[in-house]
Structures are given as structure tokens and as C-alpha cells.
Design a binder for these strands. Sequence first.
DNA 1: GTCTATACACAGATAGAC
DNA 2: GTCTATCTGTGTATAGAC
Lengths: 237, 237
Amino acid sequence: MNFSEFQKSIQHYRKSNAKDAITENRKDIRVKKEKTVAKNLQRIFEATLKIGNKKGFQAMSMRDLSDETGLSMGALYAYFTSKENLLVMLQRNGRDSFQKILEDCIDKNAKPLENLRKLIKTHIFMSEAMQPWFYFTYMEGKNLKKNERKIAVEHELHSDGILSNVLQQGEDEGTFKIQPHTLTAALIKSMLNDWYLKRWKYAKLKISVDEYADYVINLVESFCLTAPEQVEEAVES
Amino acid sequence: MNFSEFQKSIQHYRKSNAKDAITENRKDIRVKKEKTVAKNLQRIFEATLKIGNKKGFQAMSMRDLSDETGLSMGALYAYFTSKENLLVMLQRNGRDSFQKILEDCIDKNAKPLENLRKLIKTHIFMSEAMQPWFYFTYMEGKNLKKNERKIAVEHELHSDGILSNVLQQGEDEGTFKIQPHTLTAALIKSMLNDWYLKRWKYAKLKISVDEYADYVINLVESFCLTAPEQVEEAVES
DNA sequence: GTCTATACACAGATAGAC
DNA sequence: GTCTATCTGTGTATAGAC
């Protein structure tokens, strides 16, 4: 699978994600008409990501947001109760569907090596498709209040755990070296994150998403596999 | 070399760094007495890092800073001309000495493999010794104005370059596999950065700095070395 | 639903006493 | 050198007209 194939495959996730954003936050949204909400909420999210990623969420004023969305300040507050509430909505929004896609990409009947590759590709491709959200979520995590931050941390540990489980299975099966796989998972994660955190760098190096994903897979395999040359190639799906 | 040895070895760098912070910013500091400046500037820097890393620099008010330092707002402004100026001073401060230490740790007569190990250890140990500064600089980079941000980017690329050069030398020598080493350098960097970016995670996993450094070295070597088993151990310095 | 106008709290910054 | 008191702009948020 390459990135453009991936993009097609997640179309339906994106649509259901947009609807979830509304239903999850229904009580905080004063506007009734579903169509209007869908249209404006998306505009608000996009504008927040755009400004927030440029100057930081705290530094973004509601007047900035008003200018960018074309909605007046009064209108904006019909879609959220406070700036803090907007932040929470935005963070929550992508999180669940991201976790779902990560879990869904694992095939219980497939070999660990194949699942490892799929996880890496899916993570990188997701963050490419939704770069602004990933970047925003990473950078603004510390601005969340205690309870919401706790949830964010749990999600992060959960996705580390998915990686870690696959590594464990590979060890059990004998394909992977016996290693502290929670630590390995964390290191792999740092490389996955770098793709959306340091986008400018990879643009400068002229590395495409597909190249990046393949290179990371290559690196990870050379560290994890017991005998790289002897393991047969995992089947492409 | 382990972390506690490292800490002793950089004592003199730390002192000269503190003095550089004053001379570099002399024109923006109204207070004359050198002793007073040294004492208060350090308090201001520490307080800024503490508050800034908790809630973000933008969200930190000068009143917050006043409370934390014990200095009044009026007194604070005797040490910098504006909040923006404080940010720039702080970012500049560690940068040069960090770059210097990185460059100094390379031994031109040593083998590339040994230098690679030293670079990795030095980077991780530095970020451990000055964690608040590293975290702050990473997170607040985007709040810099155009010109200062450009300098920050150059520093990052420069330190990537140091890594990349060592990889190149290893390739020339035949110790390392031929690979796109700028990309490898970027990936190594992401793992180095993770140590100070996700400190809570490694604390939870009960990984020490020394363990972390060794594990990263291990991973990098298994990817870079042509024939891991045959290469003799690099001499510990 | 969306607008304009405005409340009022708090930000960064400075003047002038000590 | 450091303080207190205060200026002025901007922030978030809302009331009430359309």
C-alpha cells in the first residue's frame, strides 16, 4: 500500500469523523440546523488549526478566528461555549477515529512482521493526511486541563501499546529479537511523529511520504528481526 | 562515559554559558552591577522555563513571572526590554554552548563509530542536564519572529549535519552501510529529541538516561553497521 | 443564525518615588 | 536597583438588534 491508495481507503472514515464531531459536542452547540453546523464547524476547525499551528492556540485571538472564518465573534460563540471548549472539541475530534483506524489496520491472521509494517505505514499516512491536526494536538497538549490531558496521555499510551503488542507477538513467534519492546515502541513512535513535527525538514530533503515510511520500516526491521536475510518478505496487502 | 561523569565534565561550560548570557545581552540590560545581573538573570531564566513549560510562554503573564522570581514587574523590565526580547535571550542562551559541546565531543582521530556513539550520548546527556531549556526551545520555536526562527532552523540543520558527517565518514571507511545519511541523521535526531519531549513516558517505563542512550546506540548501530558482529568494540574514552 | 456594540478583566509596559 | 501605581491596548465573552 502506498499513500495515494491509503487516502482513498479512508474516505468513509473522514465522513463519519465529521458527523461524530457534531454529535459528540451537540450540547455545546446552540445552532440547530445540522447542515449549517456541519459547514461552519469544519470551517472553524480548519481555521483554528491554521492559525494555531502558526502562532499557537493561546496566541490566537477570537478576533483572528473571526477574520479567518468570516464569521463574527457572536456567531462563533454559537458553536462552542468558550475558547477552552473549542480546544477540547478539536483535540477530541480526530483522536477516536485515529485510534480506530490504527486498530482496524491490524489483521489478526497476519504475521507480526506484516502487522508491524502496516502499523508504521498507517501511522505515517494518517499524519500526512491530517498533518495540521496531528501537529496541533502534539503542540497544544500541555494546554489542556488536568482531566483532558489525562485522556490524551491514555490515548498515546494505548497506541504505543498496539505497537508493543505486535512486537511481543513477533518475539513469541521467533521472528523478532527478544527486547524491551515497550521501549522499542516508544522509539519507533518518535520516528513516526517526526514526520509531521518536522515537515519542513523532510520537504527540504525532498523525501516523499512513501519513501519516509519505507525507510523507517527498513530501519525498524534491521533492529527487530532475528535474521533479516532469512525472513521471507511479508505479503503486500 | 555515563551521565554522572558527563555532568562533572561540563561544569566549566555551564559557568561560561552564564557569563555569555550577560555579555551577549548587555545592551538590553539596564542594571549595572555584574553580580546582581548574574543572580537575577538566572532566576528570571529559570522561572520563565518553569512557567513556560507548564502553560506555554504566551500564556505566561509578566505578573506570573513577577510572582515566581520575587521581583516586581518594574524590576523585571530592567533585565529585558520586552517579553519578546526575553524569549529571544532565552533561546539564544543555550544554543551556542550546546553547539560548541557537540562539536567539541568529536575526536578527529577517533573512528566514526566511536564518534557516532559520543554524539548520541552527548546529545542525550545534554538534554537531560538542561531538560527545561531543551523542551522550551523545541516548543516555543514557532513563536519566534522570522529572523530568529531562521537562526534556530540553521542551528538544527547544523547539528543534523554533524551527525550526518560522521555517518558519511563511516561509509567512506567501510564501517557503515551506504545509505541516505541525511535521512538517517534526521531519524536519529527524532529519537534523541524524544528523551526530553516525552520525559513522563520514560519515567513511567523506569528507563534511566544511561539505559536510554545505550539502547538508542544499539538500535542505530544495528541499522548502520555493515557487519555488526565483526566490528570491534569502539574504545571507551 | 448572524450581526454590531460593548462590558470588563487582564495583558504588557512605564513613570516616578524610595 | 527595586518598588508601587497606573496607562493603554487587547483579550474573552455576551446582550440585544436584525
